[in-house]
């Protein structure tokens, strides 16, 4: 570690809490959201410095990109009820509490064991038997595959709940304003590029950083762009869309249940087949994750209702 490395890490580590603080204290919401997106960028750099390349991939895609867009999606609707600061007493109380928590947690963190391999060694020993050569994919889809099974259920439940609260008349896609020339050509480039990148990332996932979540969120980013620009209407709940929504969870549940029928534990893939099965699972998950992430977005930007005055006046 040279001085430059240290400075680089130091600057990154200092920027993160600073920007985070900026997000929660910014005077307006669009500023806060923009800083949040910037925070995502900077954290992706931090993940890269910490050799967490998979996390950096997901952060770049889901963490900042799609989350930022999601937060923005509510902005036009909620904008009028902005800037109601909480009372000074509450802020002071929370501030004092927070200072205490920060110092306490900080001291605790710095006193953690300085060197610990965690489960790294155990993962490396068992990776040959698992369904993937990349340690993180192996943990996600094999060693701790059960976590991921529940996580996919979380995604699906969130998608169903989002559909449930959306007003029916907002569901059919409204085509937005006509797409401008540069935007159209950009989209023409984006769609094929996204598909290629997503396919590449799924393939990489079996032996290198990459995988279903990364690929799915790239595809979703492309889908969301098409939807936001009015190029494509919002997804309707046709049979095909529903099939795509549940495909990942269905394959996962089948893979979890099949070994039970043979008297094994759940998710205990037959070992020679573990690799292909995990790859098939990744493909199914990619499709589902992409579609689910797209359903998180409203069809076209919701405009606040026109003031009720028009209806009230005789």
């Amino acid at each position: 570690m040279s001085l430059v490395d240290w400075t680089l890490d130091g600057v990154l580590a200092a920027l993160l809490p600073l920007i985070a603080w900026g997000v929660v204290t910014a005077a307006s919401l669009d500023k806060a959201i923009m800083l949040f997106i910037v925070l995502g960028f900077v954290s992706a750099l931090a993940w890269a410095r910490l050799d967490a390349i998979d996390v950096a991939l997901v952060e770049a895609a889901v963490g900042s990109g799609l989350t930022g867009a999601l937060l923005l999606s509510a902005l036009p609707a909620i904008q009028p009820r902005l800037r109601r600061p909480s009372s000074l007493a509450r802020r002071a109380g929370v501030g004092a509490l927070l200072a205490g928590i920060t110092i306490w947690l900080g001291v605790t963190t710095l006193r953690l064991p300085a060197r610990s391999g965690g489960l790294a060694e155990l993962v490396c020993e068992n990776i040959e038997q698992s369904g993937a050569l990349h340690p993180i994919t192996a943990v996600l889809l094999d060693f701790r595959g059960y976590d991921t099974l529940i996580e996919v259920a979380v995604l699906l439940v969130a998608s169903l709940a989002v559909r449930a609260v959306q007003r029916p008349r907002l569901r059919p896609g409204r085509r937005g304003e006509p797409t401008s020339e540069p935007l159209a050509s950009f989209l023409n480039l984006l769609v094929p590029a996204s598909i290629v990148i997503a396919g590449f990332l799924v393939w990489e996932g079996s032996h290198a950083p990459g995988g279903a979540f990364q690929a799915g969120s790239i595809l979703a980013g492309c889908g969301v762009s098409l939807q936001l620009t009015g190029e494509r209407p919002a997804l309707r709940m046709t049979l095909r869309v529903r099939a795509a929504l549940v495909l990942g969870l269905a394959v996962f549940v089948a893979l979890a249940g099949a070994p039970l029928l043979r008297g094994h534990d759940l998710l205990d893939y037959p070992r020679p087949w573990a690799g292909p099965l995990v790859f098939a699972l990744e493909l199914a998950l990619t499709v589902s994750i992409a579609v689910i992430l797209v359903t998180f977005f409203p069809g076209a930007p919701d405009r606040p209702e026109p003031p009720a005055r028009a209806a009230d006046s005789p």
């Binding site: 259920a153 709940m237 529903r242 969870l249 249940g257 039970l260 759940l266």
Partner: peptide, 27 residues
């Protein structure tokens, strides 16, 4: 856990499978 029927796993998988299917075949 060989020998006994793995009912414990089915308590989770059965409702999950049911939920998945009923999203697909909404009717």
């Amino acid at each position: 856990m060989s020998g006994t029927t793995p009912w414990i796993s089915w308590t989770i998988l059965a409702p999950l499978a049911g939920a998945t299917l009923s999203v697909l075949v909404a009717r």
